[in-house]
């Protein structure tokens, strides 16, 4: 017999009928509890972010003082080199430690990584978290997904840190822009922006490379 036509195949898909589902593993109470927990985590992250910002400012001040008031360029240089007086990255890192390896099954919104992202791209500081699944992440994997607005452009900005030794995702779907960089710890950080269907452009497309570079020095 010949190959099925598209019409035959789509007819079969439509006629296949509903899938018989086993009993649901969650009810409305589970959803409401999880939602409230997520809200609490979000509030804690904001408080933590404010504290981290204070520490970062303190670190920059110390950096300037330690280099004899030589200005921001020296502070940035020492930070990028990873030695000498404490700079931006060094001051920020202790304030936002990575999650414990045994983090369990949680929504993939890492408050520490969010704090670093807010510092690297202040325009997203108030952005809402995008919906992501609850999954069991291996130790070291970190992610943040935000619903962002960039002028008329809007969509989802995602930062994914892949620890050393894990395969890095590739491919670039339609409507996406991505920048990535190897991190100080030997891993890889990817910053991806997805445009919404009715968005005229990809949000923060021009800033993705610089954000990835800043985050890479701190991860």
């Amino acid at each position: 017999m010949g190959e099925l036509s598209d019409d035959e195949l789509t007819g079969m898909l439509r006629a296949a009928g509903p899938v018989e589902a086993p009993p649901a593993a969650f009810g409305v109470d589970d959803v409401v509890r999880a939602s409230r927990r997520a809200g609490t985590r979000r509030r804690n992250a904001i408080v933590g972010g404010a504290a981290a910002a204070v520490l970062v400012l303190g670190g920059v001040t110390v950096g300037i003082a330690a280099t004899g008031g030589g200005g921001g360029q020296e502070t940035a240089t020492s930070s990028a080199a990873g030695g000498g007086a404490p700079g931006f990255g060094e001051a920020a890192a202790p304030a936002v430690p990575p999650p414990a390896a045994d983090a369990g099954c949680v929504p993939m919104q890492d408050p520490g990584l969010r704090t670093l992202l807010d510092a690297a791209l202040p325009q997203v500081a108030g952005a809402k978290e995008a919906a992501v699944p609850m999954v069991c992440k291996p130790g070291g994997g970190r992610e943040v997904h935000l619903e962002v607005d960039d002028g008329p452009a809007h969509g989802v900005l995602a930062v994914v840190f892949t620890p050393a030794g894990e395969p890095v995702e590739d491919g670039l779907p339609v409507g996406w822009a991505r920048a990535g960089a190897p991190t100080a710890s030997g891993g890889y950080v990817a910053v991806t922006s997805t445009a919404d269907a009715d968005s005229g452009a990809i949000p923060f497309e021009a800033q993705l490379a610089s954000v990835a570079s800043v985050l890479a020095a701190q991860l």
Partner: peptide
């Protein structure tokens, strides 16, 4: 149940389908 079924058709596993559906409803509640 409709959301769970769509999630199942997408991922082919009822446990993961429940995770995805629950995450979606949590986001909706928020």
């Amino acid at each position: 149940d409709a959301v769970r079924r769509t999630a199942f058709l997408m991922c082919g596993d009822w446990h993961r389908a429940d995770d995805h559906a629950q995450a979606t409803f949590v986001a909706l509640h928020r």
